[in-house]
Lab assay of single mutants.
Amino acid sequence: MEQGTVKWFNAEKGFGFIERENGDDVFVHFSAIQGDGFKSLDEGQAVTFDVEEGQRGPQAANVQKA
């Protein structure tokens, strides 16, 4: 798993971006967030995640709040 920081996340649209430790950004969809209840992330929040190849390039999977 990688570690990163939430760059931004739009809860209304259900997606955002995580900044990886290497400085690259990776797309995150709310469906990739682990846990119960409303799935959202806060700007600046530390997270761990896997990276999978999506239809439009790399995207975060198995996102967990650190």
Rank of each mutant, 00 (worst) to 15 (best):
Q45P: 01
R20H: 06
F9D: 01
S31A: 07
D50A: 10
A61C: 08
F27G: 01
K39R: 14
I18L: 09
D24S: 14
T48N: 09
Q45T: 11
G37K: 06
G14C: 03
I33R: 00
N10T: 06
K65E: 07
S40I: 10
G14K: 04
G35Y: 07
E21M: 13
V51A: 04
A32D: 08
S40A: 09
D24R: 15
I18G: 00
V63T: 03
G54A: 08
K39N: 06
V47T: 03
D24N: 14
K39T: 06
Q45I: 10
V6I: 10
E19Q: 15
V28K: 00
F9V: 04
M1F: 11
W8Y: 08
D36N: 12
N62T: 04
A60G: 04
G57M: 04
G4I: 01
A66F: 11
G57C: 05
K13Q: 08
F30H: 10
E53T: 12
K39I: 08
P58N: 07
P58M: 11
F27Q: 02
D42F: 15
E12V: 13
V47L: 04
F49L: 04
A32S: 10
T5S: 09
N62Q: 05
V28H: 01
N62R: 08
V26P: 00
K39G: 06
D25V: 11
G44D: 05
S40P: 04
F49M: 05
T5F: 13
S40R: 11
Q64N: 12
V26F: 04
S40N: 07
T48A: 08
Q64H: 12
F27Y: 07
G4C: 02
T48F: 14
D36Q: 12
W8R: 04
K65D: 07
V6S: 02
F38A: 07
F17Y: 07
G14L: 03
I18K: 00
Q3T: 12
L41Q: 02
K13Y: 09
A32G: 09
Q64T: 11
N62H: 10
V26Y: 04
A61V: 15
D42S: 14
M1C: 08
H29W: 05
D36R: 10
G44K: 08
G37I: 06
A66S: 14
K13S: 07
Q34C: 06
Q64W: 11
H29C: 05
E53R: 09
A11V: 12
D50T: 13
N10S: 13
V63P: 01
V28A: 03
V63D: 01
T48G: 04
G14Y: 02
G57P: 05
F15E: 02
E43Q: 15
F49D: 01
G16F: 01
F15R: 02
A61L: 11
R20L: 06
G23K: 12
A61M: 12
Q59W: 09
D25Y: 11
Q3H: 15
A60H: 01
Q34N: 10
D42P: 08
Q59N: 05
E52Y: 14
E21I: 14
G23R: 10
D42Y: 14
G37W: 07
A60N: 01
G44C: 08
G54N: 08
V47N: 00
F27T: 01
D42I: 14
F9R: 02
A11T: 14
F9G: 01
T5N: 10
A66Q: 13
V6D: 01
A32I: 03
W8C: 06
E52D: 09
Q64R: 13
E43M: 14
G23M: 12
D50V: 12
Q45A: 09
